[in-house]
Amino acid sequence: MLRARLQHVLWLGGGSGAGKSTVARRIAARHGLHVYATDDVMPDHARRSTPGDSPRLAEFMAMDMDERWVNRSPAVMLETFHWFRGESFHLIVEDLLRLPREPRVIVEGFRLLPRLVEPLLAAPGQAVWLVPTPDFRRAAFESRGSLWHIAGRTSDPHRALRNLLARDEMFTRRLHEQTRRLTLTAIEVDTTTTEDDLTRRVTEAFGL
């Protein structure tokens, strides 16, 4: 049973720019955990996917940058983005099952949709989602210098950025709604939240 085979795994999901990677690395360093970052394996998962199991990914890969980020509404971008629909999530599970059970694993990334993670939990305390406010998300991207990373490669960067930020806000709301419905733990992250405070709250939620 997958729940038993993954009971050594801690899941840290949430919206883009919420601080998942930073918090995961800090917790891992403090408690001797192995970090599995889902962003890092996206190129590998894209290669391992097929049009049959990831049709939205195939459509996305065939688009140019304007088709992806400028010419569609944020709502359409949300509904058709492959990772937001859970495509290739099974490859995350396959990877985790190949890892040794010691040290324990903390897996992080926006691809950890509550509806897909919940059936894999031996206990609710294995999973936490970070829910950033729009102001926090924009400030986080600006501080990293990545605010225009995608939008700047389109013919209309300002429109693309508005679309991206609106799409990400809708996605974050959806994550929050799913965690409430499934009675899973979500932590709001706003501009007053420090890394130390967020790391402490996530550590406590995991029971470490």
Rank of each mutant, 00 (worst) to 15 (best):
W83S: 00
W11Y: 08
A24Y: 01
M63E: 12
D44Y: 13
P51W: 11
L12P: 00
I106R: 04
M77H: 06
L97N: 06
G86S: 13
K20H: 14
W69R: 00
T22A: 09
L121K: 09
I27V: 15
S16K: 04
R26T: 13
R47A: 12
A18G: 06
R30S: 15
S88V: 07
F89A: 09
S21N: 14
F60Y: 11
T22P: 03
L10C: 08
F81Y: 13
F60H: 06
L33T: 02
R72Y: 01
F81D: 02
E59C: 13
F89G: 05
V35H: 03
K20L: 11
T50P: 04
A28G: 11
L112G: 02
M65C: 11
V35T: 08
V76P: 03
R68C: 01
P55M: 12
V41P: 01
A122F: 07
E59T: 11
G17T: 06
P114E: 05
E79R: 12
L33S: 00
V23W: 03
G17D: 00
G15S: 13
Y36R: 05
W69V: 00
T22V: 12
F81R: 04
P103E: 10
P55D: 13
G19W: 00
T80K: 05
V23K: 03
F84H: 05
W11K: 00
H31K: 15
R68W: 02
W83Y: 09
F110S: 03
H82M: 12
V70Q: 04
G125E: 08
A123L: 15
A122K: 02
G15D: 06
A122Q: 08
R111Q: 12
L57W: 01
T38N: 02
V117A: 02
H45T: 07
A46E: 06
E79Q: 15
E79C: 13
G86D: 06
L10F: 08
R101I: 10
G125Q: 09
A28H: 04
L112I: 08
E67G: 11
R101Q: 13
P74G: 09
F84Y: 11
D64N: 10
V23F: 01
E87N: 10
D64S: 12
E67A: 12
V76D: 12
V107H: 00
A75Q: 15
V9L: 02
R85F: 11
E59A: 10
G15V: 05
M61Q: 14
S54P: 05
Y36I: 02
V76A: 14
V117H: 05
M63P: 10
D44A: 14
A123G: 15
A37L: 12
A28N: 11
M63N: 14
S54F: 04
D53A: 13
L12K: 01
R98F: 09
G13I: 04
R25F: 07
D39P: 02
G86C: 14
M42E: 09
L12V: 07
R111I: 09
V117W: 06
G13V: 04
